[in-house]
Amino acid sequence: MVIYGVYIVSKSGGLIFNLDHNVPKIETERTESYPLSYSLEYEPKKVSVAFGQKDGVNVGHVLVSVNGILANGCTLEDGRDIKELIENKDNYPLTLKFSRPKMTTNEKIFLASMFYPLFAIASQLSPEPKSSGIEVLEADTFRLNCFQTLTGVKFMVVAETIQPGMDVLLRRIYELYADYVLKNPFYSLEMPIRCELFDTNLQALLEQVEKNGIASI
């Protein structure tokens, strides 16, 4: 049982809490000879694979390091330009490390506010009257369960696809939210959740669920 992350979105669509639980690290390091068998795309903020995936280097993966030196946007830590380095035949062989791009906090906030209209449109485009918004969203790699409380706060859990009982878990998280966040006198509504007790209890809950299954809570 693997849970990848928990998100809490406020009534107005802002991300107020996020926890990355068990996100697998996808990294590949390969020693390459000239010319590269895949083509790279050089953007100001990152160097990514544009075409030709093989041996774990997939399209969309970003360049992390060259010969063990970390990449920082389009330049290396020591100031050398990555494009020049890679396109020059004399520098080979090169050891390149790629990884699946990690979401930054900004991107997470962006995604959370993107879910809000999707949720609303799903209920508007419904062929049956009185439909709720998205409750389960499934892709081939994960399943997202969403639970909206009566007050409009959305709880989301991203987990493996074959995972029954996520709605029970969501309700448990809601309980924790009610106990440790709403009863915290220093917490103001709609603001990001920074409550230590909530963090520790949620972490403990997720670990318990992962170890003993959903029936244990």
Binding site: E128, E135, V136, L137, A139
Partner: peptide
């Protein structure tokens, strides 16, 4: 394959 389906309480 990416996105496969979503469900609401009605459809």
């Amino acid at each position: 394959e990416g996105f496969l389906f979503y469900k609401t309480n009605k459809y």
